[in-house]
């Protein structure tokens, strides 16, 4: 521990600063969560007593989130989108890991940078560029053959592709980092013992990558679930939860049912994040 520079008073001040920082981090999340349990029509003080109505009540004006059709359908679409995005991103992340760790090809270093770039492009720009590109293709096909490709109009497919376009970078980086740690002599041993290439891949290499693939999948799921900027431009009639919540906030203003959704999402993503930490732990000393 590099403590020699700090006097006790300074160290105490430092600790207070760190404590204050964590209060700053927690405060808005706490505010967003706690008012889900306040028995009031507004998410504000004073405290009117504890209630679970904003989750389970089935009548207006205190319609709970589990009886609110639009919020539930938003939750459902978010789930479907996030699942598709994470499957697709883990698949491409894995092929990218093998490509960049195991293979040699021209311009490899430049292409590796290209792989990182989507992560630093603003989400709004990814959204509009994919919207424009898809519409151009759909329009061109219509002009040429009078065939309407509804998949290329705003909707679930475009949302999935838009989110995938930058989430694939995250999964590629996570899985690449793991594959770099793999000891190739394990594969050689199996090959010498007469295993086929496919068998080696499925019994040795992929099981080694599994923790990273699971962790990358969870991260992809969470990032997709919370994405707003890219989704905003690509969304059709099937709005995912963040868009539904935003509409509600903009049109009706804040109601405690939004706090209930926030609480639900925070608990859900907290558990998933914990799961991803646990998934990455075995056999990966830091």
């Amino acid at each position: 521990m590099a403590r020699s520079m700090t006097s006790p008073a300074l160290l105490l001040g430092y600790r207070l600063y760190v404590g204050a920082f964590f209060v700053f981090l927690a405060a808005p999340l706490f505010a967003a969560g706690i008012f889900a349990f306040n028995d009031s029509l507004f998410p504000a003080l004073p405290w009117q007593g504890f209630t679970l109505d904003w989750f389970f009540n089935d009548t207006e004006p205190k319609l709970g989130m589990f009886h609110d059709r639009r919020l539930l359908s938003g939750l459902y679409y978010s789930f479907v989108i996030a699942l598709l995005v994470s499957l697709l991103s883990v698949f491409v992340g894995t092929t990218n890991a093998f490509l960049f760790v195991r293979r040699e090809f021209p311009f490899k270093n430049a292409l590796y940078i290209v792989m990182i770039v989507p992560l630093v492009i603003p989400g709004v720009i990814l959204g509009i560029s994919i919207l424009v590109f898809a519409s151009n293709i759909a329009n061109a096909v219509w002009d040429a053959w009078e065939v309407e490709i509804s998949l290329l109009r705003p909707g679930i497919v475009l949302v999935v592709l838009g989110q995938f376009s930058f989430i694939a970078t995250i999964t590629s980086l996570v899985i690449t980092a793991r594959l770099r740690k793999f000891d190739t002599s394990l594969e050689e041993a199996a090959l010498n013992l007469g295993a086929s290439r496919a068998r080696v891949l499925f019994t040795i290499t992929l099981p080694f990558l599994r923790p990273a693939m699971i962790a990358a999948g969870i991260v992809a799921f969470l990032v997709s679930f919370e994405n707003f900027n890219t989704t905003l431009f690509l969304v059709g009639s099937e709005s995912p939860l963040t868009i539904t919540m935003y509409d509600r906030m903009a049109k009706i203003g804040s109601t405690p049912v939004l706090n209930a959704v926030s609480f639900f999402l925070m608990v859900g993503s907290g558990l998933l994040a914990l799961l991803s930490v646990v998934a990455q732990r075995p056999g990966q000393p830091d």
Partner: peptide
């Protein structure tokens, strides 16, 4: 892992 929206809402 909490969306921008919830943080801003808080």
């Amino acid at each position: 892992w909490v969306s921008d929206l919830i943080r801003a809402f808080g």
